[in-house]
């Protein structure tokens, strides 16, 4: 028996909107510690890892570990029927081939339930070891989204270079080139407006802008984004989900022939 009650149901709506175009089908794993997902895009270039810790739910019951295969497009269709202020409850019985989403309006005058068919999905779980990254940049998520969008009008790839001076986003295309440098800026009024660079070694990596733009759909989940880079590793783009966990996107770098 599984029963998870999330008062801030909009968080789950936002999570689905941010991953449904990257991944078609995924297994949601439920254990006593939380509700999580790890899934790769069909080309195995990008991966999304989601964690919603059990403590973030108003009510969290998970009698035994469960893995529920869901089509994210269909799940998104159902969650779009929930109001932004609704409380969302996810329910499933042991061994059932369906999951139920229940939506309650804040005033309790409208209660809806949607039953969705589960599916068998081959597990493609990657072991991602903890790593020390050479450069970690934290910046306003809206700024990062703006940069990715702007650059994708000019080129297909972005070179992200971190030095002591700042983080540089560069692209080149048929019409020309672009370079955007964000300097460390910790003297802002609000901490979420700061750009903070923690660098042990300078790093420069090339990524497909199409994927970066897809990751920025999670911008509504967090005011800040953290970009972790090492020369030998995929980049990690992380959006913290208030008090509950995170959504992390991993993207393999492009390499010169």
């Amino acid at each position: 028996m599984l029963e998870l009650r999330l008062v801030q149901g909009s968080l789950l709506k936002k999570v689905l909107e941010s991953i449904k175009d990257l991944v078609n089908d995924a297994n949601f794993d439920c254990s006593s510690s939380g509700f999580s997902l790890q899934a790769m895009d069909s080309s195995h270039v990008a991966l999304v890892a989601l964690l919603l810790r059990s403590e973030g739910f108003e009510h969290y019951r998970c009698d035994r570990n469960m893995s529920m295969g869901m089509n994210l497009g269909n799940m998104s269709k159902m969650l779009r029927c929930a109001g932004n202020d609704d409380i969302i409850t996810i329910k499933a019985d042991d061994g059932s081939d369906t999951v139920t989403f229940m939506f309650e309006s804040p005033t309790q005058d409208k209660i809806s339930d949607f039953e969705m068919k589960l599916m068998d999905i081959d597990s493609e779980h990657l072991g991602i070891p903890e790593a020390e990254y050479q450069s970690i940049v934290t910046m306003p998520s809206a700024e990062f989204a703006r940069i990715c969008k702007d650059l994708s009008g000019i080129g297909d790839t972005v070179v992200i270079s971190v030095t002591k001076e700042g983080v540089k986003f560069s692209t080149r295309g048929d019409i020309g080139t672009a370079n955007i440098v964000c300097r460390q800026n910790t003297t802002v009024d609000k901490p979420e407006e700061a750009t903070v660079i923690n660098m042990s070694e300078p790093v420069s990596l090339t990524f497909a802008l199409r994927y970066m733009n897809s990751f920025t759909k999670a911008t509504t989940l967090s005011n800040t984004v953290t970009i972790s880079l090492s020369s030998e590793l995929p980049v990690v783009v992380e959006y913290k989900i208030a008090e509950m966990g995170y959504i992390r996107f991993y993207l393999a770098p492009k390499i010169e022939e």
């Binding site: 080309s43 270039v45 991966l47 790839t157 590793l233 991993y250 393999a252 492009k254 390499i255 022939e257």
Partner: peptide, 14 residues
């Protein structure tokens, strides 16, 4: 244009 690498080059299936 540089080659797109794959996540499997970095991480193993578990």
């Amino acid at each position: 244009s540089p080659l797109q690498n794959n996540l499997m080059e970095y991480y193993c299936m578990v």
